[in-house]
Amino acid sequence: MSNYLTGDPATLLDAIPYCRHLGITAAVKDGSLLLTMPFVQHLIGNPVLPALHGGVIGSLLETAAIAQVIYETRPERLPKPVDITVDYLRSGRAVDSFARARIARQGKRVVNVHAEMWQEDESKPVAALRGHLLL
């Protein structure tokens, strides 16, 4: 357990129970982490549309931000979110979702991260996150 932060990024999220609950996995692609969240029924927030819950979308984006920071900085402790802002751009449909994050600025203690989530088309983001994490 102590070294799950420095191990294989693909297994990083397996150690986090809430990520397992949402079914989020990570793989290295083009030098950054690509997160995948296959659609399952308990991600739904609005059964009428149907649409993913805003909290699920926020959770995927926050996980992408944290995972990317771990991947790039290899910290001893899990980075702590200080604040996040999620912009919801489109309704999240009942299909598989993907997310990617990039570090906009890394200081000694605080990292500014941007993340995006999409479904079928990466050029049509469903939601975007900006946030600060404490190392």
Binding site: Y18, G58, E62
Partner: peptide, 8 residues
């Protein structure tokens, strides 16, 4: 608990 739970 994961921050996403609080967000949700």
């Amino acid at each position: 608990v994961h921050g996403g739970v609080i967000t949700g």
